[in-house]
Design a protein around this nucleic acid. Structure first.
Lengths: 167, 167
DNA sequence: TTAAACTTTCAAAAATAAATGAAAGTTTGT
DNA sequence: ACAAACTTTCATTTATTTTTGAAAGTTTAA
């Protein structure tokens, strides 16, 4: 396999993986492209390499910057903007986790809290509902806290974590 | 808030969460419904409560069973089938993790291995590509192994993990 | 063996999500 | 202040995913 083919395969694969995890395909592809580029990439380059429109490129680059995993760079003497991806994988994982927690988990926790707080009256059905949603609340809260904890380890949290788990 | 409203809100929320995580909405809703039901639910009930067609209910129940998080139950003297969800949350998390690893992570790892194995020749661009995809391979492999390790703790792995992380 | 009771399948339709591209907006050098 | 160079927005189009429902398939009891 030669370089160009490998690069394309990587971008496609990462894109497919992204869409299975709730991130849109193009966004994941752009991120993949930036990750394996050794120097900043312009919007034109992104459009050209992925064969996408200007609007699409612009919107998804913006989204990636909102997630804090892609940065703008300015080259001396160049008018246009260039982009680079966060390449430190620990940092990347932490940022993604933090963002998804904020956008998805926190709101879900709020609802879980709400629905688990109804008065259970006396039917077994309602008791079971309250019990189960309470358990779910505790579980999700614990998982979310774990994500927060990750961010406290500044370096190589995953490697250390694996060691710990293996006892 | 009264029971019916709370139940509906929970089902909707869980469904929305599912679709953000690559699981289809109806599948997540059915699962939510079964999780908070204190007794087995028939396909008719599912159709009725979620207002979905027979085919949709059938396909998604099948998918949930393939994931190993919903079970068929037979009631004595009843012709039709009933369904229950895995209600143990540790068990549920482990099964979901295992399934996603098998379906998504393992295939991605294979590709990462492939593309990181090209001969890097001498350009900085190609060297960077090989270096970055190698790092990615190691990272994803480590994360995936962590998921595998979870399954070794039979009970309350999350709680124990959180304790450990907090040191 | 038959037929009633139930479940699954899958082509077509509907719903949803993503991409386009032209127009509007912004920034920068002169 | 102007206009060239570039970026963003968003109504419309396109692509993808999900749902439907009728037909085919299966199981069970008599």
């Amino acid at each position: 396999m030669e370089f160009k083919e490998a690069k394309n395969k990587f971008v496609q694969t990462w894109g497919a993986l992204g869409s299975q995890w709730g991130i849109n395909k193009t966004m994941a592809q752009i991120h993949a492209l930036l990750m394996v580029s050794n120097e900043p990439v312009s919007m034109e380059d992104v459009m050209e390499e992925l064969q996408i429109s200007r609007g699409n490129a612009s919107m998804n680059l913006r989204a990636l910057m909102d997630w804090g995993i892609v940065y703008k760079e300015y080259k001396a003497g160049e008018r246009r903007e260039f982009f680079t991806a966060e390449k430190d994988l620990d940092e990347l994982a932490v940022k993604i986790a933090r963002e998804r927690s904020k956008r998805e988990i926190k709101p879900a926790l709020k609802i879980l809290k709400e629905v688990s707080s109804i008065e259970a009256k006396d039917s077994a059905e309602e008791k079971h509902f309250v019990d189960q949603t309470n358990k779910l609340y505790d579980f999700v809260l614990k998982a979310d806290n774990m994500l927060d904890k990750m961010t406290e380890f500044k370096e190589n949290w995953l490697g250390r974590l694996v060691l710990k788990i293996m006892k």
